[in-house]
Structure formats: C-alpha cells, structure tokens
Nucleic acid binder design. Structure first.
Ligand SMILES: [Mn+2]
Ligand SMILES: [Mn+2]
Ligand SMILES: [Mn+2]
Ligand SMILES: [Mn+2]
Lengths: 219, 219
DNA sequence: AATAAATTTTAGACTAATCTAAAAATAAGT
DNA sequence: ACTTATTTTTAGATTAGTCTAAAATTTATT
C-alpha cells in the first residue's frame, strides 16, 4: 500500500507539522528527506493522489487524517523497536536510531502488537519520546524545551528532540541523561547560551543549540 | 551494497544449488523469484558484473564464494529472526516465514550478533533448519528425506524442507512435529505414498509430496 | 508598484527492476 | 542429420524515485 519511501515522506511531514502551525514547505521536506525540491514536488503530487496529504501547488502541504495515521504507525514501530534494541539487546541510546529507521518499515500488525506486549507496553522510547498506542493516538505530556526555561527554575530532563549520534554522545559525556535534575543558573543574552547545574552538583555551560533539543518537565 | 532484490536472487540461487549439482537454469530462478525469465537474465548479468555469480549466456549460473557469503548472511538473519518470533514473541512456526522474509534484509552486523546472543546462540530455526555461524559457515547434519527411508526403519523428525503455511498446518494437524519418532510401515509402489507410525501410536497415510519435505535422522 | 530574490514547479533525463514480444541458441525427437 | 520444441536472451517499454536546468510563482526590497 505505502512504500518505504512514501512512509519516510509522511513521517517527515508529520515531524515538521509538530514544529509549525502553518503549511509545510517543499524546501523543508527536501532538507529532511535529503532530496531536491523537484523530487519532493513529484512525491507530494503522488501522496495527494493517494489522499495521504492535502496539497496545492505553491501552497505547501499538510497531512490528511489518513496520512497522519500512517505516519503515527511508522513512528510507533520506530519507537518500539528502539526500546527493544536498548532494553533487550543492550544497545546504547545513541546506537539505535539508524537500525530503527530500517525496522520501522516492517509490515505486520501482529508483529507490532506482540512486540509491544513483549516489551511490557512501554510509554516512552529510549530518548523519552512518547509511543503512540495501537490506534495511533499520541500521548501528550507538555514538556518544554530547556531553552525556554527561566533562570533559577528547577526542572527534570525527560527527553531529547534530536537523535544524532554526536548529540547523544555529547549529552552522555556531560552527564545529561533522562531523569536528571537540572537548574538553570544564568542565560547569556547575546547568544542564549546558558549555565546549568546538573543533579545539584556541577555547573555546566551549554549552547542554545543544545538547550533547544532537551525536553524538560517543570516541577 | 547489495539491494533487497539482489539478496533475494542470491538466496534463491543458493537454495537451488543445494538441490542440484549442476548449473542453475534461468527458468528455475524465474519460478522461485516469481518473475519472468527475461527479468532473471538482466539480473544475472548485473550480479555477474558485481562478481556475486559466475554466469555465461545460455550456460546457467553458479554463486561465487562472495555471492555465497552474501546468501548465507541473509539466511542466517532469516533463521535467527524466525527463532526470535517463535521463542520470544510466541508466534507459531507456520506464521513466521513471511515476516522473516522482510526482517532478513535489515542491515546491521551488530544487530545480528546481539540478536544471536539474546537468543542463546541457537543452532536451528523453528523448522529445524541449521543456522549458519557468524562467518557464514553452514553446519551439516546429513539428514535424509523421509521419502528415501526404507520400510521398518525408525527415524526422528528433525526438520522440514518447505515453509508454506498450508504444509506446516497440515503437519501440525497430523501430529508431525519436530522430534517425534517415525517408523515407516509400508511404501506403495505406484505413487510412493507411505503408511507411517507416529510416536509408536497411530498409523498415518502420507503422500510422497509430504514425505519429500520432511527431514529425518536415522537412529 | 516595480523590480529583485527566493521558492516551487515543470520538462526532460537517468537507474533499478520489471514486463511483453520477437529473435537466437540449445535440446529433443524423429 | 534435420526439424521441431523448449529455453534463453535481446529489444523496447513501463513504473518508482531521483536528478539538473529552465520556467513559473510567490515573497521581499527598494
Ligand atoms: Mn529514532
Ligand atoms: Mn527515539
Ligand atoms: Mn522461513
Ligand atoms: Mn525456517
């Protein structure tokens, strides 16, 4: 029904939709799919024919509810497989994304259901991302980006908004793991970089680029 | 390096090689890949360019050692995933082949290694097929086809040579599971059908078509 | 409001994998 | 050995996904 490639486009359009209210631009999709704008235009017309997105020339694209359902199923599989890789096979959280990118396209409802059960119906993946339920409902927890937290506010780290190996390894080195207590000490005005206290101990300096990609829960 | 499609061709050529001494014909490959002979010819030329098979027009095809190595890696993955599906997720042996057909193409040495370890380094898949080791060495056990066993010979069922759902469900219904004792009572001359005793109890009648696909160990 | 810049779409071409129909080569049957 | 049948290969076309270069449209700037 939906090809490997189509699923990747839908997943990326979904991701962009969660970051923007307005229509998604062709160029934004091209950047994440690592293709050229011309290729994206072709695919959008195809997905539109299949009723998976609503799209009009030059006006950007949105997922239809059908398209969103497909995207959420793929994301559900991606995250369940990541849990499997970390919890059962002992991978580190920075090693699982690329493998899950492949596993997420395996097509078997029964397999997903049994995998979910085998893992004990986890609510979050190893990066703190929530796992959609079997009906494609994505739980909402209202986490904020660390970059939006005010000075002297204490928070708990609940997730990351990026899965690149270099980013995750950087966090691990600094001691920024899921569940740690963070307190914002000072925010530099000109570049939004910040000094934070991790677990009540050391002071660390982190760039805004890092802070934007850390998800936290306010006490 | 090798595509999904190329891997399927190599796997099928490997399978045919174990059944025949001579070169593999274009038509034989076409039948198993569910494609036309013309498509096979194209692919054989491509695989030959990649040094994965040795092939000359009209003379049939053989795997090179490189090609065999690729095929055995795919088969190793297929069988390990089948063990996972049955042992860890609770699938029946007749439900796992199609899912393993997809999983066998997931590309990650590290994943295969860890999966193997997680499963306790199994030697056989749920159908009794041996699992090649990480170096691509296929263990040999010298099992025979039940169809080649003489009357009054007692044997143990060790595997099946076919994975179709209908065949496996038929076996399960009759009580032919891995490990059962079988004694050949009588072989009908004209159609090679046979009467067998299963587990020392009941007499069963099975066709030569079934007997050919049951692998047994002689006491 | 007119012009320049950026974005997006079209046109035309390429690769991988497939097909059908026709041609070539091999194998079989007299 | 000659003819026929079967198998295999070539020729030409198709579909999915991609690209570059050029044209069209939208957005930004004077
Ligand atoms: Mn991921
Ligand atoms: Mn994740
Ligand atoms: Mn199988
Ligand atoms: Mn098997």
């Amino acid at each position: 029904m939906t090809s490997f490639t189509e699923e990747n486009y839908l997943k990326i359009i979904y991701k962009l939709s969660t970051e923007t209210e307005s229509e998604i631009s062709t160029n934004a999709v091209a950047e994440l799919t690592q293709t050229k704008a011309a290729s994206v235009t072709d695919m959008l017309r195809k997905l539109s024919d299949k009723q998976l997105v609503s799209y009009q020339k030059y006006q950007g694209v949105r997922l239809t509810s059908q398209g969103q359902a497909v995207a959420l199923k793929v994301i559900r599989k991606h995250r369940l497989w990541e849990v499997f890789l970390v919890e059962k096979l002992g991978f580190n959280w920075d090693e699982v994304h690329d493998i899950a990118e492949q596993l997420e396209h395996i097509d078997s409802e029964e397999l997903v259901q049994r995998l979910d059960e085998f893992l004990g119906f986890p609510q979050f993946d190893p990066h703190g991302d929530p796992i959609p339920d079997r009906h494609g409902k994505m739980p909402e927890f209202g986490y904020k980006n660390l970059s939006d937290i005010d000075p002297n506010q204490a928070v708990i780290m609940m997730g990351v908004a990026q899965h690149s190996v270099s980013f995750l390894q950087h966090l691990a080195k600094v001691g920024l793991n899921l569940g740690v207590d963070i307190c914002v000490k000072e925010i530099n005005d000109f570049d939004k970089s910040m000094t934070i206290k991790i677990g009540g101990e050391i002071d660390y300096f982190i760039s805004n680029d890092v802070a934007k990609n850390i998800l936290v829960k306010v006490y």
